[in-house]
Computed example of a mutant assay.
Amino acid sequence: MAKRSANDSKTIVFLHPDLGIGGAERLVVDAAVGLQKRGHKIVIFTSHCDPGHCFDEARDGTLDVRVRGNTVVPPSILGRFSILCAILRQLHLILQIYFTSELRDLRPDAYFVDQLSAGLPLLQYLHPQGRIFFYCHFPDLLLAQGRQKWWKRVYRIPFDFWEQWSMSFADAIAVNSNFTKGVVSRTWPALVRQRELCIVYPCVDTKTKEKKPDEKPLWNGMKFVLSINRFERKKDIALAIKAFAGLSKQKRAGVRLAVAGGGAS
């Protein structure tokens, strides 16, 4: 596809909490690279990016990745208050790039923000000219664990409210599947009445690896059930195992279950 002319080129700033290795990070990197190949100027701001634990494009110079907002608030306090720390780190990042004139020098036409919407009101206030695109992977309030404890439910009230309210400051909101669209619609019906949700599926690299002459296909025609996730509770990897076990003996014959992943990033 031909690149856009200089007149059509836009400056797009990405804001992502932690540019490690995961599905959300893969989507962000793919979106950034794709837009960059179309002739746009792309800058990714993040509160954390470990060169030893990130995708190649984030460390080999393909993308302009800048770590900001990581000098005041830690990712968590004694392993707790991670959502509070994440919000404060995002606000710190936005304020830092604003007051150090990085935003003014870049003059972004648009922002791509995902995972955390808390800073959208501040971003709109500081730079109302920039259009905001928010990508919702899944409502954070449904991922929070330990809600059976009353103090945890009370603690989460302001954050759950802030998540819905802050998302309303986006000019456009996208979700990663029709399933997530249904979950978001049921979780925040008032938000969906104000904003139409569009579905943007994560990219898939369709380039096939060059096969050696004597190399057999990995599955060699075998049917399989595949689950690729981080090995952590909220991914519910047990669901794939239960689904496989729920197949009848006839349907399970000749089918392989493969569970792949890694530790939490």
Rank of each mutant, 00 (worst) to 15 (best):
P202V: 05
F55P: 04
G52M: 03
A240R: 00
S227Q: 14
K211Q: 15
D105C: 11
Y135G: 01
L126K: 03
D114F: 15
V72K: 13
P75K: 10
Q36H: 10
N178W: 10
V28E: 06
L120K: 03
P17E: 06
G23W: 04
G52A: 01
P139H: 05
V184Q: 03
P217T: 00
L226C: 03
Q96C: 12
E57T: 07
F14G: 11
M1N: 13
P51D: 00
L142G: 06
I97L: 05
V259R: 00
T180S: 08
S248N: 10
C136K: 02
R153L: 07
F99M: 11
N70L: 14
T208V: 13
V28F: 03
D140L: 14
E25M: 13
V204Q: 07
F159I: 08
V72Q: 11
V184I: 14
L122E: 04
S248F: 06
T11F: 10
V183E: 07
P17W: 05
F112M: 10
V200N: 07
A24M: 14
H92V: 01
K234D: 07
K10R: 08
W162C: 10
R193V: 06
Q250N: 11
K249T: 12
S47L: 06
L106E: 00
L15H: 12
D236G: 13
L247Q: 11
E196P: 06
Q124W: 14
I199Y: 03
R107V: 04
D56P: 09
S9V: 03
R66C: 01
H127M: 14
F134L: 03
L141T: 09
F231A: 02
R26Q: 08
S166F: 01
Q145V: 15
L84R: 10
L122N: 10
G69Q: 05
L106T: 02
L19C: 07
G69W: 02
T208P: 03
S5H: 08
G39N: 06
L226H: 05
K234G: 03
F169G: 02
D105A: 15
D214L: 12
V175P: 07
H40F: 02
P217N: 01
V175F: 08
A245H: 12
L126P: 10
N220F: 01
E210C: 07
A170F: 04
K235M: 08
Q96I: 12
F81E: 06
L78K: 09
E210A: 09
G119V: 04
L88Y: 13
L78C: 09
L239Y: 12
K181W: 06
R66M: 07
V259W: 00
P51Y: 01
D64V: 00
C85H: 05
D18Y: 13
V29S: 00
Q36I: 04
I241W: 04
L197D: 02
P108G: 11
A144W: 15
V259C: 04
A144H: 13
N176W: 00
T206W: 15
R38L: 09
N220A: 12
